Computed example of a mutant assay.
Amino acid sequence: MMSEILALQQVTFAYPSDETEVRNAVDNVSFSITEGEWIAIVGHNGSGKSTIAKLMNGLLYPNEGNVRFMNQLLNDDNLWDIRSQMGMVFQNPDNQFVGATVQDDVAFALENNGVLHDDMVKRVQQALAQVKMQDFLDHEPHHLSGGQKQRVAIAGALALYPKLLILDEATSMLDPQGRNEVLQTIQQLREETGLTVISITHDLEEAILADRLLFMNNGQKFAEGTPDEIFALGDTLLDLGLDLPFAMKLSRLLQEKGVPLIGLNMTEEELVNDLWISNFNK
């Protein structure tokens, strides 16, 4: 039986304000993630996604409710121990580098955690191999592409042997190639190691790769389910400021033009297969 890694239980948080009426940035939100699962938290700007990320790693504490990691209540006494078991990759890869070379950067957090030199060298090489960046050990980070930088950032997180990897808009500043590099890396890591992932994103092409989606709206959990279940809401998502995957929008347009399709497809591969089966394989 898979164990629960992280849980938010009836969490409410509001930023300090001088206004009489204060809107909760996160309003009575509950969810949990189990070992090996990939959850994507999606929603429009201001929906509460970024605040949830800060609540998960203890940058903020709830006004009400609690956050639990590996069945431990997150608090000041265990904050640093819990953070050491979480890997985080942020939006801008250029803001994450502190080392003169790729291997220096991956080793930075290990040095801060007092890892012995021989073990540190092993972990750096292992982590870079996991993201297929082992040939760039001595490269200067600013010479790397955006996708390569994010893969190095992921390696830095993996070197700490985290139980949970949190991607906070980690692909939003990348070009399509860089974005695909990062997402393929995450998918492969999950297949090979069973890595547990939470991705906070507005990119629906990224979200459909997750096992489960959490759709936030105005600080509240509006819907939760598989990608199929969430995107089946269709126009409701559009009304709330969330777009639909490109392949799904194209499927709808084709059906409106009379092109027969089996269903609404979420990926381009699914759409191509549907077109082939429905129109060319008769």
Rank of each mutant, 00 (worst) to 15 (best):
L60K: 09
L59T: 09
M56H: 04
P62T: 04
N45V: 10
R68D: 14
W38P: 01
R68I: 08
A53N: 03
N57Y: 14
I33K: 00
V67K: 00
G36F: 04
N66E: 13
D76K: 06
N66H: 13
G58C: 15
A53I: 01
L73K: 03
I33M: 11
E35V: 13
S32Q: 15
K54L: 03
T51N: 03
N45P: 09
N45D: 13
A53D: 04
F69N: 03
I41M: 09
N63S: 12
F69L: 01
Q72T: 13
H44C: 07
I39S: 07
E64Q: 14
N66K: 11
S50M: 06
D76R: 08
M70Q: 15
L59V: 12
E37P: 04
G46V: 14
R68V: 02
G65Y: 07
K54S: 03
T51A: 13
K49M: 08
V42Q: 01
G58D: 02
Y61K: 13
S47G: 05
A40F: 02
G48Q: 04
R68E: 09
N63P: 01
N75K: 06
H44N: 05
D76G: 11
T34R: 10
R68P: 02
V42P: 01
I39M: 07
A40Q: 01
D76T: 01
Q72I: 09
L55K: 02
I33F: 12
A40I: 03
E37L: 08
N75R: 08
M70H: 14
N63H: 09
W38R: 07
N45W: 13
E64R: 10
G65C: 06
A40V: 11
L74P: 03
K54A: 02
I52D: 13
G58V: 10
K49Q: 15
N63V: 05
I52V: 09
W38V: 07
G65L: 02
R68K: 05
D76Y: 07
T34Y: 11
G36R: 04
I39H: 04
F69D: 00
T51G: 14
E35C: 08
A40R: 00
M70D: 11
A53G: 08
V67W: 05
N57A: 12
I33H: 01
N63G: 10
K49P: 12
N71P: 01
S32A: 14
L55N: 00
G58L: 13
T34A: 12
K54D: 00
F69V: 15
E64I: 00
Y61M: 14
N63A: 03
V67R: 02
V67N: 02
W38D: 11
N71F: 00
G46C: 05
L55R: 03
L73D: 14
N71A: 07
G46A: 06
N71M: 00
T34Q: 12
M70P: 02
Y61G: 14
D76F: 12
G65P: 08
F69H: 00
T34H: 14
G48D: 05
A40G: 05
L73Y: 05
N45S: 15
I39W: 07
Q72E: 09
W38T: 07
I39P: 06
E37R: 03
L73T: 04
G36P: 00
N66R: 11
N63E: 14
